[in-house]
Design a protein around this nucleic acid. Structure first.
Lengths: 215, 215
DNA sequence: TTGCAGTCTGAACGATGTTTAGTTCGCTCC
DNA sequence: GGAGCGAACTAAACATCGTTCAGACTGCAA
């Protein structure tokens, strides 16, 4: 019992955090189907009803984990390096994918559709919006320096986001995550990430050169 | 009872298909958490144990739906138009995203990680591989005509796939699916898809021009 | 007609999310 | 320091879920 947090008596010191830790461990061990409130409660050494004093439902626990994930993702995207806007954008994308590879449990929960109802979990949506906004800022900066096609800001933002999010999803969840794929593509996920992002970045650079020439 | 298929007596005419239909309806109504074998059985007018004569588990039912989805997706990617390889690739990507928008229930199940264990559900993996191979063929054709950077085939394949898959995921599941997003981006999902794919295609064209000039 | 194999029933098991009434603790106020 | 109060927790219960199993039913072939 209570392998994840100690308790001093009838009351648990910080049950909320203990439940979050336990839930994350469950996610890492067996994916989303393995995440149950009862298991998390048992790991925290607490009865099945106790979690409901800290989370109104299982969905609320998931939302809390997702929120934590978005905060970390935003932080990692924030401190992504890069000398020029183009490199910044590339590093930002790499950070996005690396986050998914390093924290697959978080990543998987962050984009569960049952959490995308804006009315429930408004604070989660606020953090998700802030993270998204960080990407928009990067793109706008790159656009200001001509590294990105002007006009159609929304289209390019979505293109950049889609690229990073798609690669992350495929590497974490998709058919690309299995071992057999390793035979076909002789790259580690990290190498593949850098390669893909570099390819995208090269396309950007070439296109920028064309614009500088003709326009 | 049995609102999805009629039965003539003790035996059900085609329970397997009736269960698939019911399961798909459940998915469309309430997403993955709403998909339960018992509900599907009840809709087919059958006892809770009956489905196990057609699917060894709930996961097998999901795999069957996913397989159906991959087959339809491959078909739609197959008949995607386009005059030149670049346009073909663009239409292929648009078809991918359009499929996700038109069949979100299918799409959501197709990439569930619990189905990505190659040992279980081998026939599903075969169909998924075939679908993926269709994309590789498109890219290789485009590469042969210089529309795509040569070398690093894997990198570009992953880039193209990531773009389509990421956009599809974000539009179907992600924070982009909510109504509030409609205020920020004045495009329908279909318009956004065409815009994003067109932006990507333009990058390709410009980069190809640079290669033709310098190489 | 008999036998058989495949299909379905109905009851059961354990696990799950959630609710409820009641118990225990820590804190504040007198 | 004792009374009281609100928050945290327990224990039991409910409905639902996936899954199993022994038995009943059906269609078909011998």
């Amino acid at each position: 019992m209570q392998d994840r947090a100690t308790r001093d008596g009838y009351h648990h010191g910080d049950l909320r955090q203990a439940l979050l830790d336990a839930a994350l461990a469950l996610l890492e061990e067996g994916g989303l189907p393995n995440l149950s409130l009862r298991k998390a409660a048992k790991r925290a050494g607490v009865s099945p009803g106790a979690p409901y004093h800290h989370f109104v439902s299982r969905g609320a626990l998931m939302a809390a984990i997702a929120q934590e994930g978005f905060e970390r993702l935003a932080a990692e995207m924030e401190c992504a390096g890069g000398d020029d806007p183009e490199a910044k954008l590339r590093c930002c994308g790499e950070a996005y994918v690396r986050f998914a590879l390093d924290h697959p449990a978080h990543f998987r929960v962050m984009f569960r559709p049952e959490l995308s109802q804006r009315d429930e979990h408004p604070e989660l949506q606020a953090v998700a919006d802030a993270t998204f906004q960080r990407l928009v800022d990067h793109v706008r900066a790159a656009q200001g320096e001509g590294a990105v096609p002007d006009g159609r800001l929304e289209a390019f933002v979505m293109l950049a986001w889609s690229t990073a999010h798609g690669l992350a999803s495929l590497l974490v969840d998709g058919p690309v995550a299995c071992e057999e794929f390793a035979d076909k593509v002789p790259f580690s996920p990290e190498e593949l990430t850098r390669l893909v992002m570099r390819t995208f970045s090269d396309l950007l650079r070439d296109a920028a050169a064309v614009r500088a020439e003709t326009g």
